[in-house]
């Protein structure tokens, strides 16, 4: 069980993440690598933490029957990620204050938070499937950004796009090494799908059956 003190800490960290993402908006967004691989994950992480805190205050959140098996929540996450993977959305965030504001709301609350509320309810095979798909998707994007003759964002240089592709490739390889490594070196350290870092709350490790 996590303590109230830890909860406070997580809530403060989530707020801090949101604040830092907003305060260093220009700097982070000047480069697509920090925009995609620092700011967006940090916003999602903030949402993840918020959901953890919220589900302590309202335990029914985590056990909502509507989200049995985590399917509904993970589908929200899926569409949230698809939307923010469209180069159009990224360009839009840079040129339109409305889309930028939408990013600060939707990435925490339609990606990070539902992921936190659904991930551990999902069947390990579903989790494994999603993780492997995330890896292959990163790989395809990496290849696309490095090799495609088109410029996907009007707001970023072609050179930056290629660097982003390389960064995606490195992230994909690192995640593959970490996730794959855990299977080999910690075979009893959890079920196959239970491979996210130890951010579990309430000791709730069992998935819905």
């Amino acid at each position: 069980m996590t303590t109230g003190f830890q909860r406070c800490g997580e809530f403060a960290l989530a707020l801090l993440l949101l604040l830092l993402c907003a305060a260093f908006r220009r700097t982070l967004e000047a480069d697509p690598v920090t925009h995609m691989l620092v700011q967006l994950p940090a916003l999602a992480w903030a949402g993840w933490l918020f959901a953890g805190v919220a589900s302590v205050r309202r335990p029914r959140l985590e056990a909502a029957p509507t989200n049995a098996g985590g399917g509904a929540g993970l589908l929200i996450v899926f569409f949230g990620i698809v939307f923010w993977m469209l180069p159009r959305s990224i360009d839009g965030a840079l040129t339109s204050p409305e889309i930028e504001a939408a990013k600060f709301l939707t990435v925490p609350f339609l990606v990070g938070a539902p992921l936190r509320l659904s991930w551990y309810r999902a069947h390990p095979i579903l989790r494994g499937f999603l993780l492997s798909n995330a890896l292959s998707m990163l790989g395809v994007l990496a290849w696309l950004y490095m090799a495609a003759p088109i410029r996907v964002c009007n707001s970023y240089l072609v050179e930056d796009q290629q660097r982003l592709g390389l960064a995606f490739l490195l992230v994909a390889l690192s995640l593959a090494a970490i996730w794959g490594g855990r299977l080999f070196f910690k075979p009893d350290g959890g079920s196959a799908g239970d491979l996210l870092p130890d951010l579990k709350a309430n000791g709730s490790t069992s998935y819905d059956t």
């Binding site: 029957p65 509507t66 989200n67 049995a68 098996g69 399917g71 509904a72 589908l75 929200i76 899926f78 569409f79 698809v82």
Partner: peptide, 13 residues
């Protein structure tokens, strides 16, 4: 029901 929720989210998405 989860099934209805998934269907609704899929449609909206």
């Amino acid at each position: 029901r989860p099934f209805l929720a998934i269907l609704a989210i899929a449609l909206m998405g």
